[in-house]
Write a protein that binds this DNA or RNA. Structure first.
Lengths: 152, 152
DNA sequence: GGACTGCGTTGGGAAACCCAACGTTGTGAG
DNA sequence: CTCACAACGTTGGGTTTCCCAACGCAGTCC
């Protein structure tokens, strides 16, 4: 009967907006992610990846690197600390700061989360060839470059 | 002093994730949008665009077309109705449904929002050439196609 | 020493997403 | 014709992300 089964498409005005597309891709990515891990693991992943790559950081630096607000970083770090994945100690050289350091458990958790993220990623990009995935990645990276110095 | 000013980059593990990129692009898009209109106008735009393109729809159909939850559609439609942008009446043929119809004010509001969305879009994609924008749009569209039949 | 700034924390608001329940209304099977 | 079932709209709730504002404390620069 319904000769146009997949005519359930969003309106053209929406499909024309790249920002709407990006939002949809992001949402679907979150759904794929949620199938492999709790959503909070995304923030954990970001923080742990930053600590692994750049070494001990203050929470403010973490926020700047990840584009997160200070208060959100505070919450994430507290959660990770309570989970035993990192250590938080006042910086001896600047006692305003908390020096945040990953430990072994954190690195293990990071790898585990990376594996799950890769699975979600593969599902998200299922419709694209390897070349197309590379192109998409490059274009998104270039679009983001123009907004490096945004508020955070 | 700081020889690596733009070394404030997010960690490589994050930059490698297309889903993280898409999320960032989406967030920046929201920021650009917020500079031109209240954020709620995005949902308004989606609903009005669907009504304009497909004619009167039930709220459930709106949700399916836009990928929104029924309760969220309910709220948006209520807001738009209170703003005088659409009419909501029980479907005579199926009294479970609300038939939602755009009116003239709604169409005007749609065009106004479209103009603001275009401005935000231009700012979001400032770093890309026209060709790159086209490519990015096509790749995102293709990636989304593979997830047409998702939960909603 | 005093103004200024940065840090971490707390509290809060707005928006999107998702789930569960309820009463109402159609539909289809027995 | 009933009765079970499914769809609709509504309400309420929970979670996450992104912001903004304020506070007390610590460093910096004149």
């Amino acid at each position: 009967m319904n000769e146009e089964e997949d005519d359930l498409r969003p309106p053209a005005r929406l499909r024309a907006l790249t920002s709407w597309q990006a939002n949809k891709v992001s949402t679907i990515g979150a759904r794929m992610t949620a199938r492999h891990m709790p959503l909070t693991a995304r923030s954990d992943f970001a923080v742990l990846a930053a600590l692994e790559e750049y070494g001990p950081l203050s929470q403010a630096d973490l926020g700047r690197r990840l584009g997160l607000d200070r208060n959100d970083v505070s919450g994430i770090v507290t959660r990770l600390q309570e989970g035993g994945y990192l250590d938080r100690q006042p910086d001896p050289g600047d006692r305003r700061r908390n020096l945040v350091t990953v430990n072994q458990a954190g690195l293990r958790y990071l790898e585990e989360t990376q594996a799950n993220a890769d699975k979600a990623q593969a599902e998200l990009l299922a419709g694209l060839t390897t070349d197309e995935r590379r192109q998409l990645h490059a274009l998104l990276a270039k679009a983001l470059e123009a907004h490096q110095r945004e508020p955070a």
